[in-house]
Amino acid sequence: MITLGHYLVVSGMLFALGLAGVIARRNIIIVYMCLEMMLSAANLALVGFSRFHLVNGLPDYTAQSLVFFTITVAAAEVAVGLAIIVALFRSKQSVDVESVTKLQG
């Protein structure tokens, strides 16, 4: 029997994978993909809670509206982030996060 707990654990594991990728990887594009993965993991938890919190016998559509907003913000964020990566690549000729250390103390 598949319960809400199963969905939450899958969501948590996907988030943990993304977190590990953000910390361990040095290619800035792959770091960015892992960020997207973490956003989607949060969406999965939201949709799970929406399905199991019934309002008048229907899923709670407030949560799904929030997921809609999250996906929109993520799309805008990807566009801006990739433009920043392109600008970074132009000035450093590299996508390694360790090539950008100007703000390091």
């Binding site: 707990g5 654990v9 948590g12 019934l54 008048n56 016998g57």
Partner: peptide, 21 residues
Amino acid sequence: IIAVVSGTGFAKKSTANTPLE
């Protein structure tokens, strides 16, 4: 997350016992 989820009532809610009406 596994510890928190298993300690709450989330593990009892399945699609079978919360059907859409």
